[in-house]
Write a protein that binds this DNA or RNA. Structure first.
Lengths: 104, 104
DNA sequence: CACTAACGAAAGCGTATACTAACTTAACGC
DNA sequence: GCGTTAAGTTAGTATACGCTTTCGTTAGTG
């Protein structure tokens, strides 16, 4: 979960996701939308893929990128516990990251 | 928007939000749930407030913290454009952060 | 008015991370 | 096979960010 949130913390990565939101795009097309260098975008693409928000598909020498709905589904269900407090109380009784709490 | 996403990138800040999700808590109570020092948590609280995910209320020498639904509402509508692509195409025709695109 | 409790603010420090520059790899056309 | 196009990988570097320590502030309590 944290990987997803960390990935979205970078404005450029969000912008990339917006680009590929509606249609599949090639790496070159994506990087051409930004003023940074191509390797910089390439690194952002790795982060997004690792987070599960993006998928890569190879076509010859080209690489095509597309939104990965699974990652967003995960994010969605995670965030739903915040705008629905009743749900939250049910879902997180033992609470994942609470290993730190009450504890050591 | 980026402030919200940046705020959520830190695991401890997410944990804090989980704590105050159901009930209002004092600063001391919150920091007692973690092994870090109190100022560290205080800084996280500032970030969350600035992002609009948390609200502060003073009661004498105490400070009480509570989830701020407005911030989550903002986040929600932002993310909805990702799991509903039809919506995305309508909403972001000129596209906010696209100042960088096509452009220089 | 001291004294303590409950905090936040400021400064300093170490690490994580996003960038650039150079290099490498893989597929295609001739 | 050789060059070109399309892309990722690998250092290296500069800045951002989170943590700790110390100090400051405000409100209760005798």
């Amino acid at each position: 979960m944290q990987a997803i949130l960390r990935a979205l913390a970078e404005p450029r990565r969000v912008a990339i996701l917006k680009l590929v939101r509606s249609r599949e795009l090639r790496a070159g097309e994506i990087s051409r939308h930004f003023r940074t260098t191509r390797p910089a975008i390439s690194q952002h693409l790795r982060v997004l893929i690792k987070a599960g928000l993006l998928t890569e598909r190879r076509d010859g020498t080209r690489r095509l990128y597309r939104i990965c709905p699974e990652g967003f589904a995960q994010l969605r269900s995670f965030l739903e516990t915040f705008w629905d407090e009743k749900l939250a109380k049910l879902k997180s009784a033992p609470e994942g990251e609470m290993t730190e709490t009450l504890g050591l």
